[in-house]
Design a protein around this nucleic acid. Structure first.
Length: 334
DNA sequence: AAATCTGCCAACCGCCACATT
DNA sequence: AAATGTGGCGGTTGGCAGATT
């Protein structure tokens, strides 16, 4: 047999806490601690509350040194950075922000920070699009590829961005194995680029940092071959087309990425201050399954970062093309 | 002035891993 | 070993307040 039920649900009060309840709970815990048993605590002190509710009230509101509201720019940046790195693991994020609770951070993210970040990324994308267009004009005859899991990371991104590792070296695989609770992060030191003459550095790299993703992409004669050659060392048996599901499986933390971001349709974008994922229109040679899955895995992480031109690779959902074409049109690029 | 919309946030819900019986 | 409780966590809800129509 197990333990007794934690509380009598029928006789438990729900809803907002009164000042009297707060005072009762606070004074008891300050004097006696929780006693290591939240479930028994409300009965001890005469509160008609569930133990879980007492715990939450204490942790999120009554506990000393709790800060509410007034998030600083530094805190914003830290939250964004951690969210990008580990996803919606609020307790871990809260641990990095003294005085903040996971609930507070979660609420803050959902109501404000997400929109703020997306707006920022949209602006950056717009700028990147302009820059890439200029490059395109100046290098019209040169074909080259920059690949970062099929995407390039725009170097002007204000902060280093940690990305889930899709493909990694054997050394980094060991690292990942030693810390299986966290997704391995991209490090921006490795590059993959492709040029027709295989020797000349890609001028794009002056403006685009590239993170390596596809281990076997070293050379290809055309888009089709390039895509066929794409395999992922962290998922040795995977092709690009499997990447999306692999990501979902292996990096559940990223499952929290808002649907409106992952599957954004124009009308859905209206409500967001700024999402504009990146697409590339002139890459139709890549199979739709590849592009869809990669599109799915791209997220706010990539949103501003992924800048693709007709040098580049990959595109996302066909449905999104309208958005990007439309955006390009608005920017005077059509 | 009333109705409706929107943003915010405290609190609840349900799940999971682990502990206990 | 199986059943059940507990603590912890992230997702979601519902109510409130202010803004807008």
């Amino acid at each position: 047999m197990g333990r007794a039920p934690c509380c009598d649900k029928a006789n438990v009060k729900k809803g907002p806490w009164s000042p009297e309840e707060d005072a009762t709970l606070k004074s008891y815990i300050e004097k006696h601690g929780t006693g290591g048993n939240w479930i028994a605590l409300p009965q001890k002190i005469g509160l008609k509350r569930c133990g879980k509710s007492c715990r939450l009230r204490w942790l999120n509101y009554l506990r000393p040194n709790i800060k509410h509201g007034g998030f600083t720019e530094d805190e914003d940046n830290l939250i964004c950075s951690l969210y990008i790195s580990i996803g919606s693991r609020w307790s871990i994020i809260a641990a990095q922000l003294p005085g903040r609770t996971d609930n507070d951070i979660k609420n803050y993210w959902n109501t404000r920070l997400k929109k703020k970040l997306l707006g920022k990324q949209r602006r950056e994308f717009t700028q990147a699009l302009r820059n890439s267009r200029q490059l395109e004009n100046s290098k019209a005859c040169e074909t080259s590829y920059s690949i970062n899991g099929c995407f390039s990371l725009y170097r002007q991104s204000p902060q280093p961005v940690a990305l889930p590792l899709l493909v990694e070296s054997s050394a980094s695989q060991e690292n990942q194995a030693s810390n299986s609770s966290l997704p391995h992060m991209f490090q921006p030191e490795e590059k993959l680029s492709y040029n027709h003459d295989h020797t000349q550095p890609n001028n794009l790299e002056q403006n685009f940092g590239t993170f390596h993703c596809m281990s076997d992409v070293s050379c290809a004669q055309n888009h089709e071959q390039l895509c066929e050659n794409m395999t992922c060392s962290s998922f040795p048996n995977s092709s690009c087309s499997q990447l999306g599901s692999d990501l979902n499986t292996n990096f559940p933390a990223f499952g929290g990425i808002p649907e409106e971001i992952m599957y954004s349709m124009p009308q859905q974008l209206d409500g967001l201050d700024g999402f504009s994922a990146v697409d590339v229109v002139n890459c139709s040679s890549i199979s739709s399954s590849v592009s869809e899955n990669l599109g799915d895995t791209s997220s706010i992480i990539y949103a501003s970062a992924l800048t693709l031109t007709n040098y580049g690779v990959c595109h996302q959902k066909v449905a999104q093309e309208w958005t990007y074409l439309d955006e390009a049109r608005l920017l005077g690029y059509s």
